Computed example of a mutant assay.
Amino acid sequence: ATVIASQAVISGAFSLTRQAVQLNMLPRLEILHTSEKQSGQIYLPRVNLLLALVVMLLVVGFGESSRLASAYGISVTGNMLVTNILLFVVMTRIWKWPLGVAVALMAVFAFVDTGFFAANIVKVFEGGWSSLAIAAVIVLTMWTWIRGTRYLFEKTRRNEIPLDFLAGNLLKKKPHLVSGTAVFLTSDPLSAPTALMHSLKHYKVLHEQNVILSVVTAPQ
């Protein structure tokens, strides 16, 4: 049972981390696909290392598995409660269920899960604080990344110009062309990439072929 549970935690951590990266809620991490047929079979070296370090710290800190019971209880019941909240969001915003039906269904699950969570939250000082601390660190990391990338995007957009406008100016005043092909990555294919603008500004040259590449994850 321990092996199965640990494997589920590891696989779940890999899957959730990849989804968070795709949603731009975490920085990009190395993702290795271990199967040629199944896209969900992945391995994240940094996440695996982080899990190993956290597990060793918990084992050394608590000493005995029985002392982890409080932390485990808060983790499980807290996860159930958060899952209900997310399911309610999916029901109302994606599935477009009537609000009354969604509330009635979620009220049943929320009543049960809230009772379990309330019974475990009183054990915070008996070890449950560790689960809350780990969750707080993850939330803080995601919040910092989201806010930072949003600020960087807004600042970058203020300095960008429309790609059509740049193409028109280049036709009127052609820069020195060099042989080869340049690929510029951008999240907004309608604006001139920052790297392209810096290349024109500092090197005063433009490649003969230029590719503006925007990578979008297709829904599965």
Rank of each mutant, 00 (worst) to 15 (best):
T2R: 09
V3T: 13
A5F: 08
S6I: 14
I10T: 06
S11I: 02
A13H: 12
F14C: 01
L16R: 15
Q19I: 15
A20P: 04
A20E: 05
A20L: 07
A20I: 03
Q22L: 12
L23K: 05
N24L: 15
M25H: 07
L26C: 05
P27M: 08
P27R: 10
I31H: 03
I31V: 14
L32A: 12
T34H: 08
T34C: 09
S35V: 02
E36V: 13
Q38H: 09
Q38I: 15
G40V: 05
G40P: 01
Y43C: 12
L44A: 06
R46T: 08
R46N: 13
N48M: 09
L49C: 10
L50H: 10
L51I: 06
L53N: 11
L53G: 08
V55L: 10
V55G: 03
L57I: 12
V59Y: 14
V60P: 01
E64P: 00
S66P: 00
S70R: 00
S70A: 14
G73W: 00
G73T: 01
I74Q: 00
V76A: 05
V76K: 05
V76E: 05
V76M: 01
G78V: 00
L81I: 06
T83Y: 02
L86C: 08
L87T: 11
F88E: 07
V90M: 10
V90D: 15
R93D: 02
I94C: 06
W95S: 13
K96T: 11
W97I: 02
P98I: 03
L99S: 09
L99M: 14
A102K: 07
V103Y: 04
V103L: 15
A107R: 04
F109L: 11
F109M: 11
A110L: 12
F111R: 11
V112N: 03
T114D: 03
T114C: 09
A118S: 13
N120M: 15
V122A: 12
F125R: 15
G127R: 00
G127C: 03
W129T: 02
W129K: 11
L132M: 02
I134V: 10
I138Q: 14
V139M: 03
V139E: 08
V139Q: 04
L140K: 09
T141R: 12
T141M: 13
M142P: 00
T144Q: 11
W145Q: 07
T149S: 08
R150K: 14
Y151M: 13
T156D: 14
T156I: 05
E160S: 12
E160Q: 14
E160C: 06
P162W: 11
L163E: 01
D164A: 10
A167T: 06
K172H: 09
K173H: 09
K173S: 13
K174T: 12
S179Q: 07
G180V: 03
T181V: 12
V183Y: 07
V183I: 08
T186M: 02
T186K: 00
S187Q: 05
S187N: 14
D188P: 02
P189W: 04
A192N: 00
P193D: 01
T194I: 12
T194F: 04
M197Q: 10
K204G: 07
H207Q: 06
Q209I: 09
N210Y: 02
V211L: 09
V211I: 15
V211E: 01
V216N: 07
V216F: 05
T217S: 09
A218V: 09
A218D: 14
Q220F: 12
